[in-house]
C-alpha cells in the first residue's frame, strides 16, 4: 500500500445519502480480472444525469468526495474502491460508512473520514468554491476559512496508512501464533480440519 499523509484539493460535493456500491460501480463492470481501468464506470448512473457534480470542470481530478450517511452500503465489491481510486479519489468524507466499504477503502489507501452531519454540510458548502485538506497525521479536516474538524480513526489503520504497510506481511509476522492456534484447534475441534467431500447420505 502507498503511504498516505495529507490530501489537499478540490472536493466533489455529492452529498447524497446511502450511496450504494451498485451506484459506485454497477455490476456489469465487475467482469474484469484486473483492478485497473474501473474509473470509467465509477458513478455511471449519476454521471449520466445532466448537471451532476462530477461534470463540473472545477472538480475534474478532485481527490476528495463528500457524501451523505451510509456511504458504500451494499455489496462487498472492492471494485468500488478501485473505481474511485482510478478516477483519482483518495479520500471520502461522510457522516457514516458501511463497514465493508470502509475496510475496502482502507486496504486501498483511500481515507474514509467520518464527520458529524453539520460539519459535512459545512464542507459541502465550502467545497463549491474552495479546496479542502484532510490531514491524517493530525486527524483533522481543514478549509481556507479556519474550519478545523477533528476525526477519529482506528489506530491500526492509521499506522498502516501513514507507513504504507502491507497487511499480509504484518500478519505473516504472527506466523507462529497462527500455527499454534491451528495445533490447538486440531486437537480440540478436529472436525473443522480437512473437510473431505463424501458422497451425500
Amino acid at each position: 500500500m502507498k503511504a498516505v499523509s495529507t490530501i489537499r484539493g478540490r472536493a466533489i460535493p455529492l452529498g447524497l445519502k446511502n450511496v450504494d456500491t451498485d451506484v459506485i460501480i454497477p455490476a456489469h463492470w465487475l467482469k474484469t480480472i484486473s483492478r485497473e481501468g474501473l474509473g470509467k464506470g465509477a458513478f455511471e448512473t449519476i454521471r449520466a444525469t445532466p448537471g451532476n457534480p462530477f461534470d463540473v470542470e472545477d472538480f475534474a481530478g478532485a481527490p476528495i468526495l463528500i457524501a451523505g450517511d451510509n456511504f458504500g452500503c451494499g455489496s462487498s465489491r472492492e471494485h468500488a474502491a478501485w473505481a474511485m481510486l482510478d478516477m483519482g479519489l483518495t479520500a471520502v468524507i461522510a457522516p457514516s460508512f458501511s463497514d465493508i466499504f470502509a475496510g475496502n477503502a482502507f486496504k486501498n489507501g483511500i481515507l474514509a473520514v467520518e464527520l458529524p452531519q453539520e460539519q459535512v454540510d459545512r464542507l459541502l458548502e465550502v467545497a463549491k468554491d474552495e479546496q479542502i485538506a484532510v490531514d491524517l497525521e493530525n486527524q483533522v479536516v481543514t478549509t481556507p476559512f479556519q474550519d478545523r474538524f477533528e476525526f477519529q480513526i482506528d489506530p491500526f489503520r492509521k499506522r498502516c496508512l501513514l507507513e504504507g504497510l502491507d497487511e499480509i506481511g504484518l500478519t505473516l509476522g504472527s506466523e507462529s501464533e497462527i500455527t499454534r492456534h491451528e495445533q490447538v484447534r486440531e486437537g480440540a475441534m478436529p472436525w473443522l480440519d480437512k473437510p473431505s467431500r463424501r458422497d451425500a447420505a
Partner: peptide, 9 residues
C-alpha cells in the same frame, strides 16, 4: 462478506 484484499489475506 469481505473485499478482495481480504480474500487475498
Amino acid at each position: 462478506g469481505i473485499g478482495t484484499s481480504e480474500v487475498e489475506h
